[in-house]
Structure formats: structure tokens, C-alpha cells
């Protein structure tokens, strides 16, 4: 459990997203406070990824509003926000993908340095010092000069986490960070995320790891057919959810 303050980091209201006639998100509302750790669970195709991706503007929502630390990156009145502004505000969010998406032509160190050097315009020396410290933090100090193709899945995902952290985000988004990993490698990645939780990083984690969700989250969101069916502390969701649908889902998971 982490300490949360009342500062609102993300505010989403009436968020909708359609692909053609397929409505993937239907009027989603959410408020995330500083330091809060929220897990998002739910059946495949329920819109979990689409929701995270809309927050960081990898998907353009069809309606609703998104505020990141009070700044609009999507307006309820559908007036467009300039792309430079969106990129600036979305920089407060870091994202980790299921498939890592590391840059194959750069070493682990190069991957972590890329954002600070190219976007934040840091000097290579500063960026390298910080990147090495981050790689050390995720337990990969010895792999700094290795290319992604020589790393295991768990190592790749830890580099990806370090790469996101190098941008000094206030909020971290994880989309099934362990789903592409061999079972024996899941633990090392979850340990890194737990360490972030202990530092009170604000986090949204889409996951199928129920034990992890139960252990670290302040709130668990159950998504179903594009809606937040229930949002509650883990004890409530995992022991006495309001909706029978959640019970059925959890029984199938175990």
C-alpha cells in the first residue's frame, strides 16, 4: 500500500473510443491521485489497452476529456489541442509495453539515453551517468553495452522500464508488462515495479497477475465491454465484488 496525497494527476471524464462502429470505450471516468497505484483487470477485448493508450495519446479518443496534472490533452468540446502541447503534457506519463518495443539498433544504455538526449536535450555525459544509475536500479548495470537481441525477455522489459524512467515521468503506465515473458522471468520484472510502488510512483498497471494486483494496488479497476464495471480496493474486488461477472472472471483466472 502506498501513501497518496490529494493532488490529482489524471482526470478522465466521459472518455469514448470507437473503431468504426465498434465502441471500445464507453463513457469512462477516472481520477488518479498522486502516489496512487491502480491495477486494471478484465477480460480480453474489454478495452484495457485502448484506455491506457488513449491516456498517452497513442489512440485518439472520440469523445470526453483527459487532463494530465490539470492540463488538457483532450478537450470535452472536441477542440483540438496542438500536437506540441500534447507531447509536452504526455511526457509526464511513462509507458511500458507488453512487447518491450526496445530500439534494436541501440544498446541497453543507448535505449535509456535516447529520450533524455533527443527530447530533453541533455548532454551525453549527464544522460549516460543517469542512464547507468537507472540500469543499476533495475539490476542491469552489467548489461549496459549489450544489444536487446542478446537480452532475455525479463532483462528487455527492465531496460524498457529504465528507458521510461529516464524521462522522469510523474506517472507510469504498464500494459501487461509480464504477459510476453516466460513464467520464470515474471518475478524479476514485478520486483522492479514493486520497488517503484515503494517509492510512491503513481501507476496504472494493466495486468493478469492477480497476486501482484492484490498485493500492490490501492485500487483495482475491473473493465468489461468498454466500461469500468467496478473500482474498489483489492480486498473488496477479490473477496466481495458487487458484480457477479467479476466473481466469474476471477474464478476462471485461478
Amino acid at each position: 500500500m502506498s501513501e497518496t496525497t490529494d493532488r490529482e494527476m489524471i482526470r478522465v471524464e466521459g472518455l469514448c473510443k470507437s473503431y468504426g462502429s465498434l465502441e471500445v470505450l464507453k463513457e469512462v471516468d477516472l481520477s488518479v491521485k498522486k502516489g496512487e497505484i491502480i491495477s486494471i483487470i478484465g477480460p480480453s477485448g474489454s478495452g484495457k489497452s485502448t484506455f491506457l493508450r488513449s491516456l498517452i495519446h497513442l489512440e485518439e479518443a472520440s469523445a470526453g476529456s483527459i487532463l494530465i496534472e490539470g492540463e488538457a490533452v483532450r478537450r470535452a468540446d472536441n477542440k483540438s489541442v496542438p500536437d506540441a502541447k500534447i507531447r509536452q503534457h504526455c511526457r509526464k506519463l511513462g509507458m511500458v509495453f507488453q512487447n518491450f518495443n526496445l530500439f534494436p539498433h541501440k544498446t541497453a544504455l543507448g535505449n535509456v539515453m535516447e529520450g533524455p538526449v533527443t527530447v530533453l536535450k541533455k548532454s551525453r555525459a549527464d544522460a549516460e551517468r543517469e542512464a547507468r544509475a537507472l540500469l543499476d536500479k533495475v539490476g542491469l548495470a552489467g548489461q549496459a553495452m549489450q544489444y536487446p537481441c542478446t537480452l532475455s525477455g525479463g532483462q528487455k522489459q527492465r531496460v524498457a522500464i529504465a528507458r521510461a524512467l529516464a524521462m522522469e515521468p510523474d506517472i507510469m503506465l504498464f500494459d501487461e508488462p509480464t504477459s510476453a515473458l516466460d513464467p520464470e522471468l515474471i518475478g524479476e520484472v514485478l520486483a522492479v515495479i514493486k520497488a517503484l510502488a515503494e517509492e510512491h510512483m503513481t501507476m496504472l498497471v494493466v495486468t493478469h497477475e492477480m497476486g501482484f494486483a492484490r498485493e500492490v494496488s490501492d485500487q483495482v479497476i475491473f473493465m468489461d465491454e468498454g466500461r469500468i464495471l467496478e473500482m474498489a480496493p483489492p480486498d473488496k474486488i477479490f473477496t466481495s465484488p458487487d458484480h457477479p461477472r467479476i466473481r466469474t472472471f476471477l474464478d476462471k483466472m485461478i
Binding site: 507531447r87 504526455c90 511526457r91 506519463l93 509507458m95 518495443n101 530500439f103 529520450g115 533527443t118 527530447v119
Partner: peptide, 17 residues
Amino acid sequence: DRGQYEASRVLGMSYVQ
């Protein structure tokens, strides 16, 4: 891969970058 564009985007990189 599309993931390369997405990873660049979430780091805040512009299209040209």
C-alpha cells in the same frame, strides 16, 4: 514495426526525430 513509432512517441519524440 509500429511499436518502434509508439515507443518513440511515448518518449516525446517528434516525427522527424
